[in-house]
């Protein structure tokens, strides 16, 4: 492709990806309760309302609690599983990894309905625990994939050398394995955290009426009309995602992670 054509094409993609965010950013600054772009008057009142009104603070607190606990839960499943996959050559470790990837591959509504049926059966429908555990299982795929990649990057000869020098399993894990997988652990946690924060359908199905997370709150609020507060929430979410993934891009190996996170490479 010629240079000009290439520039034009890349520019068009960038405009497509960024213009909704720019417009919403402008709308979030309107001085009056109206959605104009360019904004009429500039004010940060809508951001103040977002972080000041209990109506919004409660869903924010719910979302943060769910995201934090469920991504820790996802790590707690993914870390031993990916370690076992790397350490032991047993077939059921492979089968378990496939099982860990499955919830993410199906249309989300199906997994969500499965969770709904489960929590309704055990009598925990509508509790925060149901949301947390469902998200932990739903998003286990992400740390599982990043951690498997991390373990694969460990040079087995270094581990053998340490063992020859008398290190036991625990020492090997602490001094060699853990430092090597740390950045993959953080990336996996971050992916699960951000996606849990943004997730709607599973949270809605298992406890939508009692545990209101931020996406559920936004959707419910949309029905009663649009306000610039929603634009402010959008900008906060965008900035948070950009910050987290920007940090991973800066300190981690994003191109390698991208290569691994796609189904095509999982299949082979």
């Amino acid at each position: 492709m010629s240079r000009a054509l290439r520039g034009l094409f890349l520019g068009a993609v960038l405009v497509f990806l960024l213009s909704p965010i720019v417009v919403v950013g402008g709308v979030s600054l309107n001085a009056k309760k109206a959605l104009y772009f360019p904004p009429k008057g500039v004010s940060l009142a809508w951001y103040a309302e977002l972080f000041g009104e209990p109506e919004w603070l409660l869903p924010i607190a719910n979302s943060l609690a769910v995201a934090l606990l469920s991504s820790l839960g996802a790590i707690s499943i993914a870390l031993p599983l990916s370690y076992a996959l790397w350490r032991y050559r047993v077939f059921y470790a492979r089968a378990l990894v496939l099982l860990g990837i499955a919830p993410f591959m199906l249309p989300p509504v199906i997994t969500a309905l499965g969770f709904l049926a489960f929590w309704a059966t055990v009598g925990l429908y509508g509790t925060m625990a149901a949301t947390v555990v469902s998200h932990a299982v739903f998003f286990v795929t992400l740390p599982l994939v990043t951690l498997s990649l991390g373990f694969e990057s460990i040079d087995r000869e270094i581990v053998e050398a340490a063992q020859v020098l008398g290190a036991d399993n625990r020492e090997v894990f602490r001094s060699i394995v853990f430092p090597m997988i740390r950045s993959y652990l953080v990336s996996g946690f971050a992916f699960a955290f951000v996606l849990s924060l943004n997730e709607y359908i599973v949270a809605y199905m298992v406890a939508g009426f009692t545990v209101e997370t931020l996406p559920i709150k936004i959707f419910n609020a949309l029905r009663y009309g649009y306000t610039p507060v929603m634009a402010a929430v959008t900008i906060v979410f965008v900035l948070l995602a950009a910050l987290v993934f920007g940090l991973i891009g800066r300190f981690g190996d994003l191109p390698r992670l991208m290569g691994a996170l796609t189904p095509e490479s999982r299949a082979s």
Partner: peptide
Amino acid sequence: LVILVSVLSLSAVIVAFAWSI
């Protein structure tokens, strides 16, 4: 990649709201 992953991680509620604006 940071831009793409950030957009991909956004809640569908937020994407739909942004496009309706």
